[in-house]
Simulated assay, not measured.
Amino acid sequence: MTDRLTIATWNINSVRLRMPIIEKFLEEEQPDVLCLQETKCPDANFPFAPLRKAGYEHIEINGQKGYHGVATISRLPLTNLEKREFCEMGDSRHIAVDVPFNGGAVRVHNFYVPAGGDEPDRDINPKFGHKLDFFAEMKAWLQGAETAKPAVLVGDLNVAPYEHDVWSHKKLLKVVSHTPLEVDLFENVRKTGGWIDAMRQFTPMEEKLYTWWSYRAKDWSAADKGRRLDHVWVSEALGTNVRGTRIVREARGWEKPSDHAPVIAEFSV
């Protein structure tokens, strides 16, 4: 049956280093599809065996040594693989596949958007310029025919767009990930493509919503200085099928954790 579907997204910050908590997550949550970002692993060294042992036979990867990297693992067949390069940088930051759902398929885009460095000024910080250009390319592509079909876009998009997506709107206005320039570009990509912010569809705007907490805090949970950098967008053609989203916050406190928590989206007919 393909009338129900769960898709999880997680910036794992090294797939080989975090394999124990990936296995724990798969055992406890059992998503149909898990989209990983920042795998930091060349394709030749990707740890297929423990994932297949956990029941995830279908795996597509786009990796590189030491940096970036995305992987989509699934209990369901994956077809129509696409790996798109952005900004002619050679970075492994995107993978797309079709997943069976509702007698047809859902296009699942898995993205790892550049973080953008420290200074929100492209003239002195090329990394910030790269991030802005990356969003411009996303906007040009992810509209029209690409978004007219049932589609999901998940991943670490490295922007916390709204006031309560960060622990302090005022203090972070000049901090990369929450600057007005990034937020405007981010929202432009989303709205131009007709994408729905599934997480905010189920969580009021005045409610805090975080998916990332810095390693720098001695007690990340008590300090709770988080940001929502990880997102789930759905095309309008799939909008009526979203049943909810959930941040698995406790995973941030597991042994040797990523600084991101997983997000799970549920769909049904």
Rank of each mutant, 00 (worst) to 15 (best):
T72N: 00
D165N: 13
E146A: 13
H58C: 06
E163M: 09
S221L: 12
V159Y: 08
D133Y: 03
V232W: 02
A151S: 14
Q64C: 10
D197Y: 04
I124W: 00
S177M: 06
F135V: 01
Y112H: 13
A54F: 11
L157H: 08
D3M: 10
Y162C: 13
D133S: 12
M138P: 01
I196E: 14
A265Y: 00
A237D: 07
D156R: 07
D156Y: 09
G104L: 02
K149E: 13
K65W: 11
E187D: 15
A223V: 12
D259N: 04
K171H: 12
I12C: 15
V269S: 14
E182M: 07
E28R: 11
E28W: 04
D43Y: 06
I21S: 11
S214C: 03
E23A: 14
K208W: 00
W220P: 10
V97I: 08
E82W: 00
L172A: 06
I247P: 01
P77H: 03
I61E: 12
H58A: 07
K174W: 02
T79M: 02
K256W: 00
E266T: 14
L209V: 04
L181S: 06
A217L: 05
G144H: 05
V176F: 02
D165W: 05
G116D: 15
V33H: 08
N110P: 13
F46G: 15
V234Y: 08
E82I: 01
T2A: 09
W167M: 02
L34T: 12
F86R: 02
K24S: 14
G104F: 01
I196C: 10
A217N: 10
R16T: 15
H130V: 03
G239Q: 15
I124F: 00
E119R: 12
R75T: 15
P47C: 10
E182F: 07
R190E: 07
V152N: 06
E255Y: 02
I247F: 00
L78H: 04
G226Y: 03
K218M: 06
F48P: 12
W167A: 07
F135G: 05
V166K: 03
L132H: 03
I12F: 11
H68W: 08
F135N: 03
A105T: 15
L78R: 01
R84A: 04
N62F: 07
P100A: 02
E255S: 11
N188Q: 13
I95S: 01
W220H: 10
T203Q: 08
D121I: 10
N62M: 04
R227L: 14
F128K: 06
G226H: 03
F86W: 11
S268W: 01
V15H: 08
S74I: 07
L173K: 10
D3A: 12
A96W: 01
A265P: 03
T211W: 00
T192D: 09
Y162E: 15
L132F: 04
H68R: 10
E266C: 07
L36R: 05
